[in-house]
């Protein structure tokens, strides 16, 4: 039987959740026996080449590119999992949500104490993805099937959830593995 395919991505995240996935240590050998990785920063495959059983989403949506990638994942994956606090609730990037966007950009590019920006312009190149009015958790953009909170979720939590899912068991994290920090 063909192995189920897994895709992963990091949207508005810090790659900490991907690091945590690598933290499963030698179990990664078991994991590649169980699944094939498709589009993912882990193998540097940039585009979907097949339909995937599971998509792991790290990070929320802070710009339009994040939204496009997330929608692409929803299209190509049977099951989408929000991994980590940024995906499940916006996380640290969502801290800007209580401030108007202009204030954030002004602070970052004009008024911040360490800013050196003689042009006085806020970057506005068409190549740059447009920043959203606020940071959205993934489930406010597309349908998400499972949530694994944590900052990052521990390697054990990711392992427990993935192996449960791959063996058709309910994705219930035991008490010690359900953490928000």
């Amino acid at each position: 039987m063909e192995k189920p395919k897994v895709a992963t991505t990091s949207l508005a995240g810090c790659f900490g959740c991907h690091m945590s996935l690598l933290d499963i240590d030698e179990r990664i050998l078991q994991l590649i026996d169980l699944v094939d990785f498709n589009k993912s920063p882990i193998n540097d495959i940039k585009t979907f080449t097949a339909r995937c059983a599971v998509g792991l989403i790290e990070g929320g949506c802070c710009n339009e590119e994040n939204v496009h990638v997330l929608q692409l994942f929803r299209e190509h994956c049977d099951i989408l999992i929000s991994v980590g606090d940024c995906a499940t609730m916006g996380g640290i990037p969502a801290w800007r949500n209580t401030l108007p966007l202009k204030e954030c950009l002004d602070e970052a590019y004009l008024n911040g104490p360490t800013v050196h920006n003689p042009s006085g312009l806020i970057p506005n190149d068409p190549e740059l993805p447009l920043i959203l009015n606020k940071v959205y958790p993934c489930h406010e953009v597309v349908k998400i099937d499972y949530f694994i909170p944590g900052c990052p979720p521990s390697a054990d939590a990711l392992w427990a959830a993935l192996t449960a899912l791959l063996s058709g068991k309910p994705v219930d994290l035991p008490y010690e593995l359900l953490k928000y920090d």
Partner: peptide, 14 residues
């Protein structure tokens, strides 16, 4: 944690 909540079902008011 005790109730096993993985994420809130409601929109964040922020």
């Amino acid at each position: 944690y005790r109730l096993g909540i993985k994420t809130p079902h409601f929109p964040y008011l922020e």
